[in-house]
Amino acid sequence: MQAFEAIDNRKSKIGIQKSKIKIVANEDLIYRITRAVYGRLGVGAEEQSVEQLVTDIYREVEPFLGTNGTSHVASNSFPTTGSISPQSREGSSDRMVISVFGVDHPGIVAAVAQILAAADCSIVDINQTVVQGKFAMVIIVDTARARESAAELKERLRLEGEKLGVRIYAQREDLFNAMHRI
């Protein structure tokens, strides 16, 4: 515990450095990086070197952070292990955008969700509206663990769309990223 107190002290010192390195400080992240560095080098590590190391690491990961200091990858936490996927900035080839348009009636969301569940695709985001009886839904799904190929899934959705009387399009997320993000 003594070691962690020491880290706490040093973290606050590093936190003070933020004005020098012109970053929007993410105290929690700096703390976790500091802890990881001390975990590797031991608590006896030279304070100045640790400070420098933490600053360097923060600078490297900063471009991958949102304005609130959180990662684009997942808004709730910063990954503690592994590298940050470059796909997070380019749209993912493992994600699909499924768009459903047509005349509203009960059961459209359920039917589409059932197909996705059966294919082992998890819904990452969903947005559905009805305006003047016109149904519009956009679902972003993660297909990384999908049991079916993209072509099979699309065909299944197309057939379901015919049954439901709506049009269903499935396109890879990186297409939208390429076209609408610089």
Partner: peptide
Amino acid sequence: MEYSQAEILQTVA
């Protein structure tokens, strides 16, 4: 959602 409905509609159209 990461993309606005207008962006998605434009791409599909």
